[in-house]
Design a binder for these strands. Structure first.
Lengths: 268, 268
DNA sequence: CGTTTCGTTGAAGAGTGTCAAGGCCAGTGG
DNA sequence: CCACTGGCCTTGACACTCTTCAACGAAACG
């Protein structure tokens, strides 16, 4: 009578298993009991309509959110009103990590299309991390991964040109879509040019111009929000600064590539 | 027979209590036993000479480090050799958080002056977070605070001008020195102009020029690495974009200041 | 005390930003 | 169904900030 664990697991996992999160939310090698506990954590769901905020800077931090479906941006605002988009989120991402620091969110999280999230109440989250070592480590790792990602963005903002930023941005999106089972070469940008610009530290006109240039150079085909990548290698070459007037080839040899930040993958 | 806990604590805290870390490393309201455990964690210390690396990108992640004394930078490098300084660290800071993500450090940590750190071995750290709820929460908070800090840096890199970046940078350093009991108006820059530039996304010449301009405008006095702040308000005005040709005053009224990222404090 | 690293300053130029005009598209209401 | 509207995108011309290149001076180090 049923000593095959995988069958039991299949019935228990209803809430999480047919969800895009499974690789992200479920640490590997969980037992039956642990999965039960986990599913009790993510009990509630919530819908956010396009343009609405899941939370805003200053709101009390009460939960993390796992994105089931949809697309969002997070953004911080300076005291004089400048907005900076700090990341774009899609299905499978966990958002709200910045709220832990001061028990208050420090950024706005805005849906760029109709979105559905799973609520992970902070209180229960804490219980779980305390009781399940695996879960605790997974959560710590999640936080650390976000730090590493932001390091990559700082590299991009601090030392790359407009073309390099956009090439890296497109390749990163492509990769993330691919990881989720969508086409890596054809997708729709859910954000506006201004939002891309804010994220990349550029003005919307520059974003538009660079995309047009890419299109003219047959690297991509752009039609408003629709993007098709025609030349992955070409884009990668741009990210690495392999554009004619480039002399840091010498440097490239000094440092093994393995330790370098990969602008293609670490931007999220 | 000593039923005054504060006296007992004084004797037990030898290792940590006369150390700059105490506010950062010790969660508030620890019991005697907990402090004992904590001190057992930070058993070993290590010295790093100026110019040497505490760790490098790619090194196996085995510990976090609490800086007892000294000054360091962390930096990531792109595959084509561009370096980006991602933060400057001083006494009381905990470094190495990026290593958790992949159990490998993803950045270099280089001492800018002779430095002494306490080693927090990852293994023992994990035990401690598992057994002590307070410690676990404190650690999670630490990670989240780093995320919030980086959001501030992204805002700076993505939407501020050279003068604003440098004003914010100086004020932030000032604040951090003050928190550690040093003068907030007079200090020594331990890093080079090139390193400041890398951190702020500027070239070293631009850093030098802007500092000279500040000096000429009587905001600061600069003598090589020695900086004295003469006009805090003036610097703050620059950070907020209050320089003559500024029209985002309208925006300022829209959003309550409390929720905005404070460029002065959140850069670390 | 020479050598190297670091910092300052000037002049010229490249890369983005700013301003402005027009086109495209989706949604709305007649 | 079509015209209208408003938001978004594209493109051009021009301005400006920052970088690049270069030379020199100052401090740090062996």
């Amino acid at each position: 009578m049923m000593n095959n664990p995988s069958i039991n697991m299949a019935t228990l996992r209803v809430a999480c298993s047919n969800c895009n999160l499974r690789e992200l939310c479920l640490p590997l090698g969980l037992g039956l009991k642990e999965i039960e506990r986990l599913e009790e954590l993510v009990s509630t769901r919530k819908r956010v309509k396009r343009g609405d905020a899941l939370y805003r800077a200053g709101d009390k931090f009460e939960a993390l959110y796992a994105i089931r479906l949809g697309f969002l941006k997070s953004a911080v605002m300076s005291s004089d009103g400048r907005e900076q988009v700090t990341s774009f989120h899609m299905s499978g991402d966990i958002v709200g990590l910045d709220g832990l620091a001061g028990m208050v969110y420090s950024s706005d999280l805005i849906a760029l299309e109709d979105t559905e999230v799973c609520i992970l109440p902070y209180e229960r989250m804490q219980e779980l991390t305390q009781e399940m070592h695996t879960m605790n480590m997974h959560f710590q790792k999640l936080l650390s991964m976000e730090i590493v990602r932001q390091n990559g963005v700082m590299l991009l903002l601090g030392s790359m040109h407009a073309e390099e930023r956009l090439a890296a941005f497109i390749l990163n999106l492509s990769q993330r879509f691919e990881m989720r089972g969508y086409s890596r070469s054809e997708f729709v940008l859910r954000m506006t040019r201004a939002e891309i610009g804010s994220y990349l530290g550029l003005k919307l006109e520059t974003v538009s111009r660079v995309l047009s240039r890419f299109s003219h150079d047959n690297l991509i085909i752009v039609n408003q929000k629709h993007v098709q990548i025609m030349d992955f290698e070409g884009l990668r070459a741009i990210v690495s600064g392999q554009t004619f007037n480039n002399q840091n080839i010498a440097l490239k040899a000094v440092k093994p590539a393995a330790t370098g930040i990969d602008a293609l993958s670490d931007l999220d």
